[in-house]
Design a binder for these strands. Structure first.
Lengths: 199, 199
DNA sequence: TGTACATCAGTGAACGCGCGTTCACTGATGTAC
DNA sequence: TGTACATCAGTGAACGCGCGTTCACTGATGTAC
């Protein structure tokens, strides 16, 4: 805690960061201990000085990916709001951007991993479930004050589902059409402030 | 083709059916050749008389799961429409039912596998992408005639996303709340016929 | 109808490979005096 | 300040296991005559 972080702590952080990127890129099932250690600049033998098991690493990776995704999201939203976008528009355009379509490894881990969640360990599932709740809360804060909790849930489902379907269709015209459709649909329904240059 | 299906054809069908259930239950990565053959009542050695590779089986399984999910969906919708539900209500209540929350192995393969799609072989991805387009078309047929393609895409994303988030939250009150929220949100917006007993 | 043979679906042992995990060891960092 | 020792992070070989794939063989089905 005191002074500069020790060598081990720095290694630990590199491992978790590498794992957080790897799960979003390859899925839980596609991530191996040796790959992650290599990406962190280490050899696989030292892994068990950092985690009791591969599964514990996945849990830490999901937790880190959640924070990472949320903070990148907040930054992207702030930039758009500084340019005059409403909070909802900033959220929708940040979440459903073409950049996120192409770069899942730095995006929202829920979109990258949702359908694998039911098959994970209780430890991983618990962290993932609280991330889902966190995303619903974040969405709710961008909605009109009179919108109920159920609207925030539905909009969250819309965001996550649209990004996944877009990725399933591919990083091409069809995938981009899916993103555009979801952006338009959500904003048409809930963006009371209209577009910045609407007329 | 003529007469009763041969022994081999019957075995092939059993293998594909077992695989179609397995991928929805365990994900692509969780499905092994030996497991599927066992579930089909065979031993693993005979597999390569039916498929050139595990990946070819996954493609056939995705295709079959798509047809299976769509036909179960059509049946569930028909029952609800016979009871007086509008097409959209029948679709939304069938897709976002608590039965589907608990039984992913007989449900929509897109909801069960969406986030794994970008990591599959071109063969599998192509079949999956056409299933996504098919679901969008099916949704569009339940929407008011003046609703654009983008509305059908957004509603599809909402359906798929809500089921996945519900499953990520768990087969419990939180998961069911996610389904209910999405059902209400979609019907509030697009169901012009109102509830059957609305007043 | 019955026998001999060919075909063919399925069996189960085996192979090679990759993965999670373990462990004896190395080399560097830090501490005692 | 310098030397001797202890601690500790990381290395790399090894183990066991499961998986996709191959293959020689078996037993059943179908055909020829």
């Amino acid at each position: 805690m005191a002074g500069p972080a020790s060598r081990k702590v720095l290694s630990h952080e590199r491992i978790v960061e590498a794992a957080a990127r790897a799960i979003r890129r390859e899925g839980y099932a596609g991530v191996g201990v040796a790959d992650v250690m290599k990406e962190a600049g280490l050899t696989h033998g030292g892994f068990y000085a950092h985690f009791p098991s591969r599964d514990a690493m996945l849990a830490a990776a999901m937790d880190h990916a959640g924070r990472d995704g949320a903070s990148r999201m907040a930054q992207a939203m702030a930039r758009r709001q500084a340019e005059g976008a409403s909070p909802l528009r900033a959220m929708v355009e940040s979440y459903l951007s073409e950049k996120m379509l192409a770069n899942c490894e730095i995006g929202c881990p829920i979109a990258a991993l949702a359908s694998e969640m039911p098959r994970q360990s209780p430890q991983v599932r618990e962290i993932a479930a609280s991330r889902v709740q966190g995303l619903v809360r974040a969405v709710r804060q961008t909605l009109p004050a009179d919108a109920g909790e159920h609207v925030a849930m539905a909009v969250t489902a819309n965001l996550v589902g649209a990004m996944q379907l877009a990725r399933a269709l591919g990083d091409n015209a069809e995938g981009r059409a899916m993103l555009a459709a979801a952006r338009k649909s959500i904003l048409d329904q809930y963006d009371t402030e209209g577009t910045p240059a609407s007329h």
